[in-house]
Each structure stands twice: as C-alpha cells, then as structure tokens.
Design a protein around this nucleic acid. Structure first.
Lengths: 104, 104
DNA sequence: ATAACATATCGAATAATTTTGATATGAGGT
DNA sequence: ACCTCATATCAAAATTATTCGATATGTTAT
C-alpha cells in the first residue's frame, strides 16, 4: 500500500541519480538498445538493468522487446506527466491560509 | 567539483522523499514558519532542519529570517527552473542518431 | 533438446541517506 | 551580562540505495 507521496517520489527518482541522468541524456538522442547503453556507460550489465527498471517504473522511459534485445526510449506521455506533476506540486493552492503563527 | 549531473540530481532530490513532498504540500498553502511545519509533520526539530536544507539547496524553496523564526515558501523562480530542466532532460535532441545497433 | 546470448533477479558488500538525541550557534528579551 | 527560545550542526544508529558477481529466465538458432 503506497501513499501518493511515495508514488510521486518514485517518478522523480528517475532524475535523482547521476547514472540515470546520463542514461536519459543518451536516450534524448533517440531509442537505444541496452547494448548501446552498456558500451557508453560505466556500468555492468546488472547495474544497467537495475537503473533501467527504476526509469521504466517511473514512467519516464518505456521499453520495447525485440527478440532478445530490449530497446529503451523516453516516454513522451510519462515525461510530460512528470512535468505536469512538478508544476502541480509547486503551484500555490487557491486556499490562502495567511495565519501568523509566531508572535513577534 | 560537482558534475552537471550531480547539480541536476540535487534539484530533483527535493521531490524524491515523502517527507519533503509533504512539506511542499504544506507550503503550497503559502509561506509557513518552521514552528507550523513542525506541528503538522511527523518530524523532530533537527529532522525538519535537515529536510529544509535540502529543499532550500535545491532552489525549490526559499527561506526568510524574521527574528528567531525562519519562514519558508516555494520559490517561483526555483521551481520554474526545475520544470524547465525536467522538460529539457526529456526532450529529444535535434540530432537524430538512428543507428541500428544489434543485428536481428 | 541443446547451445548461445540478452536481460532479470538474487544475495552480499558497500555507500549514501535519513533519523535521533545531544550540543552549538544566534537572536531577542530582561 | 544572562536567560530563553529557534534553528543548525554534529555524531551515531538505522534505514535505504547502489554496486557487483553469480545464477536464473527467456529468446533465437541449430
């Protein structure tokens, strides 16, 4: 049972790690097979798999199986959702509660 | 010496933790004094201070000193920068490198 | 079915983050 | 100056994330 906070945190975890930011940068150049990512990154096979899982579960990246190879690309839907969510989380509410808390 | 990846990761760390998302939610209601945050959250004084430091260093939150009290609010500038950055990190490059890597 | 290869999963080791309590710093009031 | 209160910092413990190597799963070809 995950709170909405955990769900949201999971999305932004995609952007919180150096290795994953590097992967995203590579994917900005277009869909890439895992083998390409492997040779461009300082990561072992299981390490890449670990990070790709986090990226895919965040929704920011999507994967496509083609025979034994897996291809990854940035999900337009997922990343635009992340953007929308970020804006939501940082936009003031309608309700303005201007209560002074601490007497000066 | 921090890489650009670390710099970017630091910004999104604001959104990667349940407690910090809760704090942001409270700040959406307007500027809040630390004392208010403390009573609304399941956090001790030093724990709040720890998370606020991360939020402020991400640029998403800004703080204002008023006598002995510190007031926090969402930084419009910082959060719009985070939004812009997120979009950048997930938008395809102009350069399309469509090289087939693995022969089928 | 077996072999060869790509990826996923597991467990242990390591590293990073978070929590907690104690103490330090810094501001305001007496 | 002292005292009080708010916040920051520190160090240790607890928790979580990441890495790495070994093994498992799944796909294709023979």
């Amino acid at each position: 049972m995950a709170t909405v906070y955990e769900e949201h945190a999971r999305i932004f975890k995609a952007f919180c790690d150096e290795k994953r930011l590097r992967i995203l940068e590579l994917l900005r150049g277009g869909e890439k097979c895992a083998c390409v990512l492997l040779e461009q990154l300082d990561l072992g096979q299981s390490g890449l798999s670990y990070h790709m899982k986090i990226l895919v579960e965040s929704g920011v990246v999507e994967s496509r199986q083609e025979g034994k190879w897996t291809h990854y690309k940035i999900s337009e839907k997922g990343s635009s959702y992340a953007g929308t969510l970020l804006k939501e989380l940082t936009t003031p509410n309608a309700i303005k509660e201007e209560k002074d808390c601490c007497k000066k």
